[in-house]
Design a protein around this nucleic acid. Sequence first.
DNA 1: CTGAAAGCGCTTACAG
DNA 2: CTGAAAGCGCTTACAG
Lengths: 358, 358
Amino acid sequence: MRVTLKDIADEAGVSMMTVSNVVNGKRARVSPDTIERIQRIVAERGYVPSASARSLAAKSSRLIGLLVPAADEDSLMISPHNVAIVGQIERELRKGGYHLLLRGIAEPAEVAEALQSWSLDGAVLLGFLDEEIDRLTPRTIGKVSLLAIDSYSANPLTTGVRSDDFTGALLAARHLISLGHSEIVFASPSFSSVGVVHQRYEGFRAAFAEAGMEWRERLVTVETTTHAQGRSLGLRLMSEHPDATAVFATADILAIGIMEGLAESGFSVPADVSVLGFDDLDLSRYVTPKLTTIAQDIPQKAQIAVRQLLATVESREHLTDPITLDVRLIERDSTASPPVLVRAGLEEQDARGQRDVE
Amino acid sequence: MRVTLKDIADEAGVSMMTVSNVVNGKRARVSPDTIERIQRIVAERGYVPSASARSLAAKSSRLIGLLVPAADEDSLMISPHNVAIVGQIERELRKGGYHLLLRGIAEPAEVAEALQSWSLDGAVLLGFLDEEIDRLTPRTIGKVSLLAIDSYSANPLTTGVRSDDFTGALLAARHLISLGHSEIVFASPSFSSVGVVHQRYEGFRAAFAEAGMEWRERLVTVETTTHAQGRSLGLRLMSEHPDATAVFATADILAIGIMEGLAESGFSVPADVSVLGFDDLDLSRYVTPKLTTIAQDIPQKAQIAVRQLLATVESREHLTDPITLDVRLIERDSTASPPVLVRAGLEEQDARGQRDVE
DNA sequence: CTGAAAGCGCTTACAG
DNA sequence: CTGAAAGCGCTTACAG
């Protein structure tokens, strides 16, 4: 049925080994003539090597897993922010001659099965909590190289790639402070003393410290980072924090929901309240007003993640240290000076106007 | 290193075959005692069967491919509309005990390699043009079952699952006609005489026919279905079609771009121009005004696609006939009566108002 | 530069 | 209810 190495070898009148060497590019060991002849036959017959056979015989499968949390009855939990990463990871792997197994994980025990059943050479963990990564043991991981995206887990069995969350939040807070805000709400999912959100919290506070200001802690949390939760938060935000003039949300999708809730409850963004997000989703440019946010370079993140993972897979060396990527502030239309300052400015302007007329 | 069938067999004092039968649930052939003992050992040792070995020995790999077009230097071409499908497909496959290989296809020749190298049992084609699917031959497909999503290709080697595009466009046009519109622009990527967009075009025209109206053909096309192309289309739309009072776009992302272009060039949606999309992306509820659109049941589409594919994979029977899924109109805020009618209505109202006062 | 042999971890008939 | 043998399509040392 299927064309095999042996078929090609028979037709070329050589051993399977020689065909194998040609197919795998180990040309130094075969004469140019033979190479040319074998390649012609391979093309003619449409020979495609069996990856399972190769995986079984060699110690490498050239298969990388992409593990994503999945509530059992739900779909994969790929946040809008993570969607772009999936495609980029596939592309980088394909360029490197690897294949991608996409796997949802409904419960911790499935990780071992996912890693071992196809003898994965490595896996990328996308969207897991640091606590979950901390719990990974040698028994479930085996000898598979693991790289977690957006993780601050200290588990020595894994490495990671993440954005500079601390600096991102620092830039966000600096921007709001420079506009004259001091009463700022920090909106996020609930967080512990480690992880992405905690880093952003620390960066946010650091901006106040460096400005010599004191931040009156205004924390609001959502159960899940969704538009719906953001909206309901936006609806009640100003009654819970009547003095607030700005909100920093740890995700664009949350910020966009907050803007909608704010608008529905009669507040104008940014005239009454400024809103600042994190991620720079495409979506952030489609909503009104366009969202000011912290941008991450997603293609770069995926590229570095894959390269780092493949480096350890191919060298079979120890995991490299975690890598942290730069972020930057993207100013759009959802942030402005707080209402009191704007009014003060207008009065000043009126005064000057009068002077000019005189 | 790895725990194998043989390890379990030795420890249990039975043959590999017996362990294999237990692991694969063929319990009828083994005594209850033995089953219980083997299962305990399997759990203790953390035995995970080797999928490559099983794939090589059996005729089935329990691996399904998800093939997606990919420009070489670009990421996977997963449209916002297709993003949701990926996660759903993975979930359905996992529930059925299959694994998912996600593969970008940069050129046609890669399809054969993608299908054969891991001996896929089947594959889902997502985002390919009908012309590309038409060109698939037995040589590249082999005996792999293929299902194309959103395809109208007549290639007998594949089957398909798609939404009722004809009816969707019919509902869209009926809605606009019932609001009083007659000068409607049809915005889409360029299309041939077959395929999703052509179906929508036919459905759109059918609504005019059934209303006994003549549609003054106003076609505008974009190169790619993106927000940016929609925006630039929206910017020039009213100068190219000054009499138009509505636009039907064949994709939400396009419609949302058009709304932005329209707004930038000083037209109000829906007061001046109504806009209607297709897909019902989450995004459609986040923009202002919220987009009226045609909804497809994405989870259902993914679920039916997988079930249909697995049915032919497991029965090894012929491919089933293509399935067409229902769609429905979601009325939101981007459609209203055309300006002249609104004005006429207001005058009428004024007149009535006066009568009431008298 | 080329080859014969063993083995990767399973499943599939075929026997008993 | 259970087992011994062959084989799936490759790669890996080891020889020549």
